[in-house]
Computed example of a mutant assay.
Amino acid sequence: MHLHIKQADIGYHTNLISKAEAGLNLGEVCLLIGNNGVGKTTLIKSILNQIPLLKGQISIHQKNITSFSVKETAENIAVVFSKSVIPQNYTVEDLISLGKYIYYPFYFELKKEDRQEVSGIIKELNLLQYKDTLLKNLSDGNLQKAFIGRALAQNSPVIILDEPTTHLDEENKIIILKTLRRLAKEQNKLILFSSHDWRLAKEFADKMWYIKEGRLYSGIVEDILIQHRELTEISLFEVNRKFIPPMITAPSLHKEMLYSLLQKNFQKDLSSLHFEFHNEFWLISGTNEAYKYESFEEILNFIQNLH
């Protein structure tokens, strides 16, 4: 086990997470998930030895992290926080190149092979056209990718990312997550990243760490999702008390969309109706006859004209 958390109490003065027990091996991708304020970032900072444990131990390659020097920590762990300080007058290439300077005094020039590797990372992250662009002129998404590029250039066996896809569109999220998984498998990296976007992230992670009510649950992604159904259930928010919903038989996303449409537009009892989704159309029954509609707009018009 390359990263091992052993009976750790994690927090500042009081426990956010109690008796945490978890471990990850090289070559694994792990998704860290939990509601805001439960301790995800605190856990990451504890692994980096930026916050001392209240109890227990965290080790990297069987060595207690409290014994690491700053340089040893950087050689073992590369990190990207969701809010990073933007170096003034740095370009994308400058920032990604910074990942190499943990191996040299800062005044040294990078070797040819280092520069080639930096160029490869820039190309892989689809940042080639922004190579010489100042960081302050980048979009949030491209800036985030540049910081991830710096972590990749560091070549540490462990890469930890705090909300790495927060500002990215779907295409760039997939680019980042595919890159992280490829690195884990091809270069034997241990990747730990936090995210709220579990539906997308779960497709790329082997393990999941889930923080809930002061406990850290860890295991194979699918096991954790099955054991904690609140992670996969669509939330049907009740904002209209006069609305009485119909029966809806549909996949979770379609069910959520229909529920949202009906409850924000109607303050009446629709419980006599049954909406059933069939691939490309909705079948509505409960009146004198059944009706078939393909769009939500058609459904909206139908309910508006229903007496």
Score class of each variant (00 low, 15 high):
residue 61 H to L: 11
residue 30 C to N: 05
residue 76 N to M: 13
residue 81 F to T: 08
residue 42 T to M: 07
residue 42 T to G: 00
residue 51 I to V: 11
residue 26 L to V: 10
residue 89 N to K: 15
residue 86 I to L: 12
residue 56 G to S: 04
residue 36 N to F: 14
residue 51 I to Q: 04
residue 91 T to Q: 10
residue 91 T to S: 14
residue 3 L to I: 05
residue 65 I to H: 03
residue 8 A to S: 13
residue 4 H to V: 13
residue 16 L to V: 11
residue 13 H to L: 13
residue 38 V to H: 03
residue 22 A to Q: 05
residue 46 S to C: 08
residue 58 I to Y: 01
residue 60 I to D: 02
residue 78 A to M: 09
residue 7 Q to Y: 02
residue 78 A to D: 00
residue 40 K to H: 04
residue 21 E to N: 15
residue 30 C to F: 03
residue 41 T to F: 08
residue 84 S to K: 10
residue 4 H to S: 09
residue 64 N to V: 02
residue 11 G to N: 14
residue 60 I to W: 10
residue 41 T to H: 05
residue 42 T to N: 06
residue 12 Y to A: 00
residue 33 I to K: 10
residue 35 N to E: 15
residue 40 K to A: 03
residue 24 L to M: 10
residue 62 Q to Y: 15
residue 43 L to A: 07
residue 14 T to C: 09
residue 63 K to V: 11
residue 9 D to H: 13
residue 61 H to C: 13
residue 15 N to E: 15
residue 79 V to S: 02
residue 3 L to M: 07
residue 80 V to P: 04
residue 6 K to A: 14
residue 80 V to R: 09
residue 24 L to T: 00
residue 62 Q to K: 15
residue 36 N to H: 10
residue 89 N to S: 15
residue 4 H to M: 03
residue 15 N to I: 14
residue 15 N to A: 14
residue 24 L to C: 00
residue 80 V to Y: 02
residue 63 K to P: 03
residue 56 G to N: 03
residue 58 I to R: 01
residue 88 Q to H: 13
residue 63 K to R: 11
residue 63 K to H: 11
residue 19 K to I: 00
residue 31 L to F: 01
